[in-house]
């Protein structure tokens, strides 16, 4: 996993609630057996007409908005557990998703792929949408180390929470799997103890 420390970028606004993972990447694009290339179909049905032509009114097709930060309404990433949703966002180029609320599985999938979910208060989210609306070139400063998100050129800043273990993983680019593999002996010991308990019950 890539290391994440901080980012300064403009943002893409998606002021909708309950954006589910079927919208982020529709099921018919889940037939791939690798992790690459999902960005082309990110928000496919909101982004393109059935004939493949872009829908002019969708934000990703509007050249006014760009950046590595996606700002979305509450309950982002609900529904299906497909990690392809996180892969399509990172493959497209997003490094941060901001919302006032994230669905659990999506949050975990994002963190496992170096995509930082930043949960802000509804009021700060509203401020961010307003700032982008007033000036699409507004930059936002996200610091994982300090756990802050700020609107550049203003005093506006908010702290965000992240699990301390996840923070260390993201700052250093560690995967859970390396850690779990290092515990092989302890896992086997756990299994032995449990097997012993089961036999006791049978006797």
């Amino acid at each position: 996993m890539e290391k994440f420390t901080h980012i300064i970028s403009t943002a893409v606004p998606l002021p909708m609630e309950d954006v589910d993972t079927d919208q982020i990447i529709p099921a018919r694009f889940l037939k791939a057996t690798t992790r690459e290339g999902f960005g082309d179909n990110l928000f496919r049905d909101w982004r393109y007409h059935p004939d493949g032509s872009p829908k002019a009114d969708f934000v990703l097709n509007n050249p006014t908005y760009s950046g590595k930060i996606l700002v979305a309404g509450k309950n982002f990433g609900c529904g299906s557990s497909r990690e392809h949703a996180a892969w399509s966002l990172t493959d497209y180029g997003f490094k941060v998703v901001v919302s006032s609320f994230f669905a659990d599985i999506f949050r975990g999938n994002a963190l496992n792929n170096g995509l930082l979910p930043v949960q802000v208060s509804p009021a700060f989210l509203h401020e961010m949408f307003t700032a982008i609306e007033n000036d699409p070139q507004t930059k936002f400063i996200v610091s994982l180390e300090h756990q802050t998100i700020a609107i550049a050129g203003t005093e506006r800043e908010e702290q965000f929470d992240i699990d301390p273990f996840r923070k260390v993983c993201m700052l250093n680019g560690y995967d859970d799997i390396d850690y779990l593999l290092s515990l092989k002996d302890e896992i086997e010991e756990f299994e032995r103890v449990r097997e012993g308990e089961k036999k006791e019950v049978l006797i």
Binding site: A86, G108, D175, I177, L180, I187
Partner: peptide, 22 residues
């Protein structure tokens, strides 16, 4: 509960997951 593919790999590799109690 449902998990993402990175976690599928973790369980295949170690039969364990690293989780915060809900």
């Amino acid at each position: 509960f449902g998990i993402g593919t990175s976690q599928v790999e973790q369980v295949l590799a170690s039969q364990c997951l690293l989780l915060k109690r809900p």
